[in-house]
Design a protein around this nucleic acid. Sequence first.
DNA 1: TGCGATTAGATCGCGTGCTATTTAGTTGTT
DNA 2: AACAACTAAATAGCACGCGATCTAATCGCA
Lengths: 144, 144
Amino acid sequence: MSSTLKLDQQFCFALHSTMLAMNKAYRRLLEPLGLTYSQYLVMLVLWQRDGLTVSEIGEQLFLNSATLTPLLKRLEAQALLVRRRSGEDERQVLISLTDEGRELQAMAKGIPEELGQTLGCGGLHLDELRKELIQLRKRLYDRS
Amino acid sequence: MSSTLKLDQQFCFALHSTMLAMNKAYRRLLEPLGLTYSQYLVMLVLWQRDGLTVSEIGEQLFLNSATLTPLLKRLEAQALLVRRRSGEDERQVLISLTDEGRELQAMAKGIPEELGQTLGCGGLHLDELRKELIQLRKRLYDRS
DNA sequence: TGCGATTAGATCGCGTGCTATTTAGTTGTT
DNA sequence: AACAACTAAATAGCACGCGATCTAATCGCA
């Protein structure tokens, strides 16, 4: 079998399987907050800036409305945010945090550090790695 | 907002979003083969060694039976493989490629290189990156 | 031999994530 | 004003991926 078809040597499989592992690690951390990792990402975006449209959130997270609409509805059902049509443009839906949603930020404060303890601990160049991943992502989107 | 909660600076988000982008790139490449990326991974495992149990495939791919069973059934429905109970241990299910499944390998030969052209092209240290991801994956599984 | 513990897969229910399509609102052009 | 083109979000249908649970087979040990 050609070496390029070997699983262990495939960069993409490393990416895929490490992401699954990371997702699993987040599940434990986020369970007390009642969030999935994707929901956590949406909350991160909104904690940074509130009142965004669905598309604006999607641009930041690289997700489209087919994924976001149901996800946002679930967060709304948890009373973390409110969805309302924009007055200026009735096509748009504005997403605003509730008090409860804002308060959740305090509970999430410790999460990056907690995960950092698992990831960090020497030998890894996470910041370098992050930059290369972002470069990679850009290439993948540019050429398709 | 604490800088550790900023999206752009989060390694994990870079990992997550890059994986989505990669998955999308694979979709185009694999569409002619009628495979998803996960199905392609299973085929990679089987092209390397045939007649594995569900668990053995799962160990290599870091997937459990809840994911694999329906996935393997779909591949069986495409006549790429056969699932049969082991004679020695009736609990186990052995997965064997059909001729059709083996023949598909030829069609997949070019895929790593084709994707490599998108990913490669200078500036990135994919092999280094791959090793660090694997190290990371190991840490995530060890500490949970 | 018998019976509790363990193991392998299968199943359930849920939450992503996607492509393709639909619906409703807006824009631009005549 | 009218109407085609465009846009935002929603929806449909599909395939993962998971924790939890179930079923059936095997193991272990008295």
